[in-house]
Design a protein around this nucleic acid. Structure first.
Length: 271
DNA sequence: AAAACTACCTGAGTGC
DNA sequence: TGCACTCAGGTAGTTT
Protein backbone atom coordinates (compact mmCIF):
# COMPACT_ATOMS: atom_id res chain seq x y z
CA UNK A 1 0.00 0.00 0.00
CA UNK A 2 2.64 2.44 0.74
CA UNK A 3 2.28 5.36 -1.60
CA UNK A 4 3.62 8.82 -0.90
CA UNK A 5 1.38 9.62 2.11
CA UNK A 6 2.23 6.34 3.80
CA UNK A 7 5.96 6.75 3.22
CA UNK A 8 5.78 10.36 4.39
CA UNK A 9 3.86 9.26 7.49
CA UNK A 10 6.50 6.64 8.16
CA UNK A 11 9.28 9.16 7.60
CA UNK A 12 7.78 11.66 10.03
CA UNK A 13 7.06 8.89 12.50
CA UNK A 14 10.50 7.34 12.66
CA UNK A 15 12.55 10.52 12.25
CA UNK A 16 12.43 11.70 15.89
CA UNK A 17 13.35 8.21 17.06
CA UNK A 18 16.34 7.94 14.73
CA UNK A 19 17.92 11.40 14.54
CA UNK A 20 21.14 11.53 16.53
CA UNK A 21 20.78 7.92 17.64
CA UNK A 22 23.63 5.48 17.35
CA UNK A 23 22.91 2.05 15.89
CA UNK A 24 24.13 -0.59 18.32
CA UNK A 25 23.28 -3.79 16.47
CA UNK A 26 21.65 -5.06 13.31
CA UNK A 27 19.89 -8.34 12.72
CA UNK A 28 19.06 -9.31 9.16
CA UNK A 29 16.63 -12.17 9.66
CA UNK A 30 15.68 -12.47 5.99
CA UNK A 31 18.03 -11.19 3.35
CA UNK A 32 15.81 -12.06 0.37
CA UNK A 33 13.77 -8.92 -0.21
CA UNK A 34 13.16 -7.47 -3.66
CA UNK A 35 16.93 -7.43 -3.89
CA UNK A 36 19.20 -9.05 -1.32
CA UNK A 37 19.68 -6.75 1.67
CA UNK A 38 22.93 -4.89 0.97
CA UNK A 39 25.84 -6.26 3.01
CA UNK A 40 26.69 -2.67 3.99
CA UNK A 41 23.58 -2.81 6.20
CA UNK A 42 25.42 -5.35 8.39
CA UNK A 43 28.07 -2.71 8.97
CA UNK A 44 25.67 -0.10 10.40
CA UNK A 45 26.52 -0.76 14.07
CA UNK A 46 28.60 2.06 15.47
CA UNK A 47 27.18 4.61 13.02
CA UNK A 48 24.97 7.53 14.00
CA UNK A 49 21.87 8.71 12.11
CA UNK A 50 22.22 12.28 10.85
CA UNK A 51 19.21 12.73 8.59
CA UNK A 52 15.93 10.99 7.75
CA UNK A 53 14.20 12.11 4.58
CA UNK A 54 11.99 10.90 1.77
CA UNK A 55 12.36 10.98 -2.01
CA UNK A 56 9.43 9.50 -3.93
CA UNK A 57 8.57 6.32 -2.06
CA UNK A 58 12.11 5.85 -0.81
CA UNK A 59 13.16 6.59 2.76
CA UNK A 60 16.69 7.91 3.06
CA UNK A 61 18.51 7.36 6.33
CA UNK A 62 21.84 9.16 6.33
CA UNK A 63 24.45 7.75 8.67
CA UNK A 64 28.21 8.31 9.14
CA UNK A 65 29.49 6.50 6.09
CA UNK A 66 26.59 6.75 3.64
CA UNK A 67 22.83 6.44 3.24
CA UNK A 68 20.45 3.58 3.77
CA UNK A 69 17.75 3.53 1.07
CA UNK A 70 14.57 1.83 2.28
CA UNK A 71 11.56 1.00 0.12
CA UNK A 72 8.41 -0.39 1.72
CA UNK A 73 7.31 -2.23 -1.42
CA UNK A 74 3.69 -3.33 -1.30
CA UNK A 75 3.36 -4.56 2.25
CA UNK A 76 6.26 -3.13 4.19
CA UNK A 77 6.13 -1.10 7.38
CA UNK A 78 8.59 0.25 9.92
CA UNK A 79 7.92 0.16 13.60
CA UNK A 80 9.68 1.17 16.77
CA UNK A 81 9.40 -1.55 19.31
CA UNK A 82 10.61 -2.49 22.74
CA UNK A 83 13.34 -5.08 22.01
CA UNK A 84 11.76 -7.33 24.63
CA UNK A 85 8.63 -7.59 22.51
CA UNK A 86 8.43 -10.87 20.60
CA UNK A 87 9.63 -10.65 17.00
CA UNK A 88 6.79 -11.38 14.58
CA UNK A 89 6.79 -13.48 11.47
CA UNK A 90 8.01 -11.30 8.55
CA UNK A 91 10.02 -8.97 10.79
CA UNK A 92 12.98 -9.17 8.42
CA UNK A 93 15.31 -6.56 9.78
CA UNK A 94 15.97 -5.20 13.28
CA UNK A 95 18.05 -2.15 14.14
CA UNK A 96 18.89 -1.77 17.80
CA UNK A 97 19.27 1.88 18.82
CA UNK A 98 21.07 3.49 21.75
CA UNK A 99 17.71 4.87 22.90
CA UNK A 100 16.71 1.40 24.00
CA UNK A 101 14.21 1.03 21.16
CA UNK A 102 14.46 -1.16 18.11
CA UNK A 103 13.49 -0.26 14.55
CA UNK A 104 11.76 -3.25 12.94
CA UNK A 105 11.04 -3.75 9.26
CA UNK A 106 8.01 -5.95 8.64
CA UNK A 107 7.15 -7.00 5.07
CA UNK A 108 5.08 -10.13 4.37
CA UNK A 109 5.40 -9.95 0.60
CA UNK A 110 9.09 -9.06 0.61
CA UNK A 111 8.79 -6.52 -2.20
CA UNK A 112 10.59 -4.00 -0.04
CA UNK A 113 14.26 -3.11 -0.23
CA UNK A 114 17.19 -2.13 1.98
CA UNK A 115 19.94 -0.69 -0.13
CA UNK A 116 23.04 1.32 0.56
CA UNK A 117 24.94 4.07 -1.13
CA UNK A 118 28.13 5.74 0.02
CA UNK A 119 27.52 8.73 -2.25
CA UNK A 120 24.65 11.08 -2.97
CA UNK A 121 21.48 8.95 -2.78
CA UNK A 122 19.77 11.10 -5.41
CA UNK A 123 22.37 9.92 -7.91
CA UNK A 124 21.59 6.28 -7.18
CA UNK A 125 20.39 4.48 -10.27
CA UNK A 126 16.96 3.87 -8.76
CA UNK A 127 16.48 7.54 -7.89
CA UNK A 128 18.24 9.52 -10.57
CA UNK A 129 15.54 9.31 -13.22
CA UNK A 130 12.55 10.04 -11.04
CA UNK A 131 10.09 12.79 -11.89
CA UNK A 132 9.26 15.71 -9.59
CA UNK A 133 7.72 15.43 -6.16
CA UNK A 134 3.95 16.00 -6.50
CA UNK A 135 3.89 18.51 -3.65
CA UNK A 136 6.79 20.58 -4.98
CA UNK A 137 6.75 23.45 -7.48
CA UNK A 138 8.17 21.27 -10.25
CA UNK A 139 4.84 19.49 -10.53
CA UNK A 140 2.56 22.01 -12.21
CA UNK A 141 0.10 22.12 -15.10
CA UNK A 142 2.68 23.35 -17.59
CA UNK A 143 5.01 20.47 -16.74
CA UNK A 144 2.23 17.90 -16.81
CA UNK A 145 1.08 19.22 -20.18
CA UNK A 146 4.55 18.68 -21.61
CA UNK A 147 4.55 15.11 -20.29
CA UNK A 148 1.10 14.35 -21.72
CA UNK A 149 1.56 15.99 -25.10
CA UNK A 150 0.97 13.47 -27.87
CA UNK A 151 0.70 10.54 -25.46
CA UNK A 152 -1.98 7.92 -26.03
CA UNK A 153 -1.49 6.23 -22.71
CA UNK A 154 -4.33 6.70 -20.24
CA UNK A 155 -4.03 9.59 -17.83
CA UNK A 156 -4.20 7.20 -14.90
CA UNK A 157 -1.21 5.18 -16.08
CA UNK A 158 0.54 8.48 -16.69
CA UNK A 159 -0.01 9.60 -13.09
CA UNK A 160 1.38 6.31 -11.85
CA UNK A 161 4.53 6.62 -13.97
CA UNK A 162 7.35 7.62 -11.61
CA UNK A 163 9.19 9.31 -14.48
CA UNK A 164 6.25 11.73 -14.75
CA UNK A 165 5.53 12.30 -11.07
CA UNK A 166 6.54 10.23 -8.06
CA UNK A 167 4.56 8.88 -5.16
CA UNK A 168 1.16 8.49 -6.81
CA UNK A 169 0.16 4.83 -6.74
CA UNK A 170 -3.00 2.98 -7.56
CA UNK A 171 -5.16 4.36 -4.76
CA UNK A 172 -4.33 8.05 -5.06
CA UNK A 173 -4.41 7.97 -8.87
CA UNK A 174 -8.07 6.89 -8.79
CA UNK A 175 -8.89 9.37 -6.04
CA UNK A 176 -7.20 12.33 -7.75
CA UNK A 177 -8.92 11.67 -11.07
CA UNK A 178 -12.25 11.55 -9.32
CA UNK A 179 -11.78 15.01 -7.79
CA UNK A 180 -10.55 16.36 -11.11
CA UNK A 181 -13.62 14.91 -12.88
CA UNK A 182 -11.44 13.15 -15.46
CA UNK A 183 -12.13 9.64 -16.74
CA UNK A 184 -9.13 7.47 -15.83
CA UNK A 185 -8.98 5.84 -19.28
CA UNK A 186 -8.81 9.13 -21.16
CA UNK A 187 -5.76 9.45 -23.39
CA UNK A 188 -3.29 11.74 -21.62
CA UNK A 189 -2.67 13.80 -24.74
CA UNK A 190 -6.34 14.65 -25.14
CA UNK A 191 -6.95 16.57 -21.94
CA UNK A 192 -7.22 20.33 -21.96
CA UNK A 193 -4.81 22.57 -20.12
CA UNK A 194 -7.49 23.69 -17.69
CA UNK A 195 -8.39 20.16 -16.78
CA UNK A 196 -4.74 19.21 -16.28
CA UNK A 197 -4.44 22.18 -13.99
CA UNK A 198 -7.37 20.89 -12.00
CA UNK A 199 -5.73 17.47 -11.90
CA UNK A 200 -2.51 18.87 -10.45
CA UNK A 201 -4.55 20.55 -7.73
CA UNK A 202 -6.48 17.36 -7.05
CA UNK A 203 -3.35 15.25 -6.77
CA UNK A 204 -1.87 17.73 -4.33
CA UNK A 205 -4.94 18.11 -2.15
CA UNK A 206 -5.63 14.38 -2.00
CA UNK A 207 -2.03 13.63 -1.00
CA UNK A 208 -1.98 16.42 1.56
CA UNK A 209 -5.20 15.27 3.16
CA UNK A 210 -3.98 11.68 3.21
CA UNK A 211 -0.77 12.73 4.94
CA UNK A 212 -2.84 14.60 7.52
CA UNK A 213 -4.77 11.42 8.23
CA UNK A 214 -1.60 9.37 8.56
CA UNK A 215 -2.07 7.61 5.23
CA UNK A 216 -4.41 4.84 4.14
CA UNK A 217 -4.48 1.44 5.78
CA UNK A 218 -6.11 -1.15 3.51
CA UNK A 219 -4.32 -4.32 4.50
CA UNK A 220 -0.78 -4.09 5.77
CA UNK A 221 0.27 -0.53 6.33
CA UNK A 222 0.85 0.59 9.92
CA UNK A 223 2.55 3.61 11.37
CA UNK A 224 5.74 3.51 13.38
CA UNK A 225 3.74 3.09 16.61
CA UNK A 226 1.58 0.32 15.17
CA UNK A 227 -1.50 2.47 14.58
CA UNK A 228 -3.29 2.50 11.21
CA UNK A 229 -3.72 5.43 8.83
CA UNK A 230 -7.19 6.92 8.80
CA UNK A 231 -7.57 8.11 5.22
CA UNK A 232 -9.38 4.94 4.21
CA UNK A 233 -12.63 6.44 5.51
CA UNK A 234 -12.17 9.39 3.16
CA UNK A 235 -11.69 7.36 0.00
CA UNK A 236 -14.30 8.50 -2.51
CA UNK A 237 -13.98 5.76 -5.12
CA UNK A 238 -11.17 3.34 -4.35
CA UNK A 239 -12.48 -0.15 -3.54
CA UNK A 240 -16.02 1.26 -3.57
CA UNK A 241 -17.39 -0.51 -6.63
CA UNK A 242 -21.20 -0.36 -6.68
CA UNK A 243 -21.40 2.06 -3.79
CA UNK A 244 -22.89 5.53 -4.36
CA UNK A 245 -20.67 8.31 -5.61
CA UNK A 246 -20.28 10.83 -2.76
CA UNK A 247 -21.23 13.63 -5.15
CA UNK A 248 -24.03 12.27 -7.38
CA UNK A 249 -24.96 8.87 -5.90
CA UNK A 250 -24.28 7.03 -9.16
CA UNK A 251 -22.79 3.59 -8.41
CA UNK A 252 -18.99 3.63 -8.59
CA UNK A 253 -17.61 1.70 -11.56
CA UNK A 254 -14.58 -0.57 -11.72
CA UNK A 255 -12.35 -1.58 -14.60
CA UNK A 256 -8.82 -2.76 -15.14
CA UNK A 257 -6.38 -0.29 -16.63
CA UNK A 258 -2.77 -1.24 -17.20
CA UNK A 259 -3.47 -4.41 -15.22
CA UNK A 260 -4.49 -2.39 -12.18
CA UNK A 261 -7.86 -2.06 -10.53
CA UNK A 262 -9.35 1.33 -11.30
CA UNK A 263 -12.38 2.98 -9.72
CA UNK A 264 -14.34 5.97 -10.95
CA UNK A 265 -17.75 7.59 -11.08
CA UNK A 266 -19.18 7.10 -14.60
CA UNK A 267 -21.24 10.27 -14.28
CA UNK A 268 -18.77 12.70 -12.66
CA UNK A 269 -15.85 11.46 -14.77
CA UNK A 270 -17.20 11.31 -18.27
CA UNK A 271 -14.48 12.92 -20.35
C1' DA B 1 10.16 5.86 -28.13
C1' DA B 2 6.41 4.01 -26.22
C1' DA B 3 3.43 0.48 -24.97
C1' DA B 4 2.58 -4.17 -23.19
C1' DC B 5 3.67 -7.57 -20.31
C1' DT B 6 6.44 -10.40 -16.83
C1' DA B 7 8.45 -11.22 -12.60
C1' DC B 8 9.17 -11.06 -7.63
C1' DC B 9 6.11 -12.86 -2.75
C1' DT B 10 2.62 -14.01 1.03
C1' DG B 11 -1.92 -13.83 2.78
C1' DA B 12 -6.84 -12.96 2.59
C1' DG B 13 -10.86 -14.09 0.55
C1' DT B 14 -14.03 -16.94 -2.47
C1' DG B 15 -16.19 -20.94 -4.37
C1' DC B 16 -16.50 -25.81 -4.69
C1' DT C 1 -12.00 -28.45 6.61
C1' DG C 2 -9.42 -28.36 2.65
C1' DC C 3 -8.07 -27.36 -1.89
C1' DA C 4 -7.67 -24.42 -6.00
C1' DC C 5 -8.03 -20.25 -7.39
C1' DT C 6 -8.00 -14.93 -7.64
C1' DC C 7 -6.46 -10.69 -6.12
C1' DA C 8 -3.79 -7.07 -3.60
C1' DG C 9 -0.96 -1.05 -2.58
C1' DG C 10 5.27 -1.23 -6.42
C1' DT C 11 8.38 -1.12 -10.08
C1' DA C 12 12.59 -2.90 -12.69
C1' DG C 13 13.35 -5.31 -16.58
C1' DT C 14 12.24 -7.54 -21.01
C1' DT C 15 9.64 -7.95 -25.23
C1' DT C 16 6.73 -6.15 -28.89
Amino acid sequence: MPELPEVETTCRGVRPHLLGRKILAVAVRERRLRWPVDVAIDRLPGQTVHEVSRRAKYLLIKVDRGTVIVHLGMSGSLRLADPELAVRKHDHLLLQLDSGLELRFHDPRRFGAWLWTAGNPHQHRLLNRLGPEPLADGFNSEYLRQCCRGRKKSIKEMLMDAAVVVGVGNIYASESLFYAGIHPARAAGRISKNRLERLVESVQSVLQQAIQQGGTTLRDFLREDGSPGYFRQQLAVYERKGQPCPVCNTPIAHRVLGQRSTYFCPKCQKG
